[in-house]
């Protein structure tokens, strides 16, 4: 059902194979999602509210179990190993870390302490951690200025930077970035995505980013998947998606033929429901 031939690259760092996710043992939220992220790639996961983007990311990072969700079918392979039964702690140690939606900085810890918690799983000594802390400060000069502020008092953009910086402190190979643009001013969103691109190019970190803002996500990602009600309904190179008529209509908000009434859009949408 998904065109495997269009897969981004032959050597994926992350391979999600047809997973199903059930919450509370009854609610089927993902109905067979497959996707992969190539080594060093930036892949976008797009879709409306409730499409299953966050669930997909949490299934990969194994944060699902803390919310009584479970992967009931399929497999998740990270860096050549199956990871669906690992604890988040093990997974971070292996190099996959999630930056959660809504940033989730530790409000009562200072920015610097927040960054240091990211190095919790590391065993390579204080010196190496401090070197990486300086590297993070080099990437986010603003965090250095605010290093002794409690994170709860930092601005939204600073908190997002703090959350990404905290993830970088674990020396990840893959960052699962959930809704980085949420609640941020457009210029700050641009800044965050520039940093993602920069980290990807400089440090070789792969990104899987879930976004509602398809417009910006498809500008920075090389490949995209579109989720709708727990299924991948469309995938392809970012370029191809951006020129796809349906994506333009529903996700980029650029209709082809001028203004149309909402009523007509709705019936059109019902008729065109992909693969449903």
């Amino acid at each position: 059902m998904v065109s495997q031939t269009a897969s981004p690259s032959p050597a994926p760092i992350l391979d999600v194979l047809n997973i199903e996710v059930v919450y509370n043992a009854v609610a089927l939220v993902l109905k067979g999602v497959s996707l992969n992220v190539p080594k060093g790639g930036v892949v976008a996961l797009l879709g409306a509210n409730g499409a299953g983007k966050t669930t997909t990311l949490k299934a990969i990072s194994n944060l699902l179990r803390a919310e009584r969700g479970e992967v009931t079918k399929g497999a998740i392979v990270f860096d050549g190993e199956r990871i669906d039964r690992l604890s988040p702690n093990d997974l971070v140690r292996r190099g996959a870390i999630q930056v959660m939606e809504g940033r989730h900085c530790f409000g009562h810890l200072t920015i610097e302490e927040n960054l240091l918690t990211g190095a919790f799983t590391r065993r390579d000594g204080r010196a190496a951690v401090m070197r990486d802390l300086e590297a993070v400060y080099a990437t986010f000069p603003r965090l250095k200025e605010r290093r002794s502020t409690q994170a709860g008092y930092a601005s939204g953009g600073e908190q997002q930077m703090c959350a990404i910086g905290r993830a970088m402190m674990s020396r990840p190979k893959l960052i699962l970035l959930d809704e980085p643009s949420m609640g941020l001013a457009p210029t700050v969103v641009e800044e965050i995505f520039e940093i993602v691109r920069d980290l990807n190019a400089r440090e070789g970190v792969s990104f899987l980013l879930a976004e509602q803002n398809a417009n910006i996500a498809l500008r920075y990602a090389s490949f995209g998947y579109i989720l709708e009600t727990g299924r991948v309904v469309l995938d392809g190179a970012a370029e191809a998606l951006r020129s796809n008529e349906d994506v333009r209509e529903f996700y980029l908000g650029v209709a082809q033929s001028g203004r149309r009434s909402f009523k007509r859009v709705k019936t059109y949408k019902r008729r065109k429901r992909w693969l449903a």
Partner: peptide, 14 residues
Amino acid sequence: RAVADDHQAALSVG
């Protein structure tokens, strides 16, 4: 202290 602040986030950083 991180755990005291936010269980979920603490879990997410390992």
